[in-house]
Amino acid sequence: MIVVTRFRVPFEEVQQFRDDLVTAHEALAACRGYLDGTVGRNVDEPDLWVLTTRWENVGAYRRALSSYDVKMRAVPVLYRAVDEPSAYEVVDPGTDLNVASARSLG
């Protein structure tokens, strides 16, 4: 699965935000199930930043968000994200896609 998290950052906060986002990425990258990721900045709108990560599955990502280190080092930055859906399934040929329906917890 892919997680695309976007941020709007005022110019005067860019350096601190960049450092904090790199720290957040490092915390996520240390988690089990993390595959790869990048930090980026939009070339046309330089106040728009992105953290893109790739995970073995949605469970690995959700467990990562629960880890103590991620809660301390990444969650404070992730709270600044643009409020929009961020988790995407990878669509490869022949892949069974997620079904948009209620799920049983039992």
Rank of each mutant, 00 (worst) to 15 (best):
R18D: 08
D36I: 02
Y68E: 15
R8K: 13
N57M: 06
S101R: 02
F17T: 06
V77A: 05
P85S: 09
V43K: 12
V90A: 05
A74R: 04
K71I: 12
G59V: 06
L35P: 02
D96L: 09
L35Q: 11
E56T: 11
V3R: 11
R63Y: 12
D83M: 11
A102D: 05
Y34Q: 00
L97M: 05
P76V: 02
L97T: 04
N42L: 08
P85N: 09
R63P: 03
E45S: 10
R54I: 00
A60Q: 09
E45P: 00
Q15G: 00
V43E: 07
R62G: 01
V22H: 13
R32K: 14
D69W: 07
E26N: 10
A81C: 14
D83I: 09
A102H: 00
G59L: 10
R8D: 13
Y68V: 15
A27N: 04
Y79D: 15
D69T: 12
E26V: 07
V90I: 11
N98K: 00
T52I: 12
R54G: 07
A24Q: 01
V43Q: 11
C31P: 03
V58H: 05
G59M: 10
V3L: 10
R63F: 11
L28D: 08
S86M: 13
E84K: 09
S67M: 15
D20P: 09
R18Y: 07
N42W: 10
L97H: 00
H25F: 09
R6A: 01
L97D: 00
S67Y: 08
H25D: 04
L78Q: 09
A29L: 08
Y88K: 06
L97S: 01
N98V: 01
Y61A: 06
T38W: 10
V22A: 12
D83R: 14
T5Y: 01
Y88N: 05
T95A: 06
Q15W: 10
R73W: 15
A100L: 05
W49L: 02
D92C: 04
D47G: 03
R41K: 13
V90D: 13
M72D: 15
R54T: 00
N98R: 06
T53F: 03
A27D: 04
V90S: 00
V70D: 10
V3E: 08
D47M: 03
T95I: 03
E13I: 01
N42Y: 06
G33V: 04
Y61H: 15
N98S: 06
T23Q: 09
L21N: 04
Y68L: 15
R41H: 05
R32E: 13
F7L: 06
A81T: 13
D36R: 15
P85M: 09
